[in-house]
């Protein structure tokens, strides 16, 4: 734990320097977004901006709209009202090539969603070839480098079913990174994992945060929020209730609902 904390402190100091620099256009702008599923208001008047290199952690009770918010950011769900601008591109515009935008946004799912019929290496290489039009050799090299980075180079020719949950999730992260995304979205990346595997995934995410990746992370892992979050957001019933700088939401929540929620999830 100690080296992690050191790393994190250094990292936060770097971050604070960045904050003093002149503000640039946010890489994600969410403006008064509404999303409804039949009777359920999954998102109501949600607004949020994320700066380049920022790490935003989202928490909230089940059904509060965290996944929906994330899925709207790469247009896996379309919004019913408001607008979303990612890297200067309006997702709601009819003219927008959504596939091009998605290639710039990596997404990591709770259930990993690796492609079971492909080897680990092919999982990471496929979209590079199909979407990025890279050659076989290049995409394979990128895949191998990323497997090194997430710490499982020896699993390249295995199938996903032969890997532990933690290893699968690291492959999923590598698969997303292979597209060289500008933004990474994580939807409860560790909540399907056995406790002993959570750390190996969080470590990869932490390293990514320290490299300056823009990240929106739905997770109740306080350790990660402490070490990496620039802001933490609490959602309930489709709304953003409270936003805290770094991990202040956990240490000093102001809203009653936030306090109540935290008292339930933190032990």
């Amino acid at each position: 734990m100690a080296p992690d904390t050191q790393r994190a402190t250094r990292f936060i100091q770097q971050r604070e320097k960045n904050v003093n620099e002149p503000a640039q256009e946010p890489i994600i702008i969410v403006e008064s977004v509404y999303k409804r599923f039949k009777r359920v208001h999954a998102l109501s008047d949600v607004s949020l901006t994320v700066q380049q290199g920022e790490v935003v952690v989202v928490v909230g009770p089940s059904g509060s709209g965290k996944s929906t918010l994330l899925r709207c950011l790469n247009h896996l769900e379309s919004v019913d009202g408001g607008r979303i601008i990612v890297d200067g591109i309006h997702l709601t515009d009819k003219a927008t090539d959504i596939n091009q935008v998605r290639a710039e946004i990596g997404m990591v799912f709770q259930q990993f969603n690796l492609f079971p019929h492909l080897t680990v290496l092919e999982n990471i290489a496929l979209a590079q070839r199909v979407v990025r039009k890279r050659g076989d050799e290049e995409s394979e090299q990128v895949a191998r480098d990323l497997l090194d980075k997430v710490g499982i180079p020896e699993k390249a020719s295995n199938y996903p079913s032969q890997l532990s949950g933690g290893q699968q999730q690291r492959v999923a992260i590598a698969r997303a990174l292979a597209m060289n995304p500008k933004i990474m979205l994580f939807d409860e990346p560790t909540s399907a994992l056995d406790p002993e595997m959570i750390k190996e995934v969080l470590d990869v995410m932490l390293a990514l945060a320290q490299e300056g990746m823009t990240m929106v992370v739905v997770s109740h892992e306080m350790g990660f929020a402490k070490a990496a979050a620039d802001r933490t957001i609490f959602m309930d019933e489709g709304r953003i209730i409270e936003v805290g700088v770094r991990d202040q939401l956990f240490t000093a929540p102001t809203h009653e609902r936030t306090k109540l929620f935290l008292s339930k999830v933190l032990h």
Binding site: N99, R102, A103, F109, N113, F115, A127
Partner: peptide, 27 residues
């Protein structure tokens, strides 16, 4: 085929037909 397969493929920037061809149909 689980919905997550199509979503993972689309989230990587594949279009519908690419996702069908490389991910859904082979399975």
């Amino acid at each position: 085929i689980e919905k997550g397969q199509m979503e993972a493929a689309r989230s990587l920037g594949m279009n519908y037909f690419q996702a069908m061809r490389y991910i859904i149909l082979p399975q």
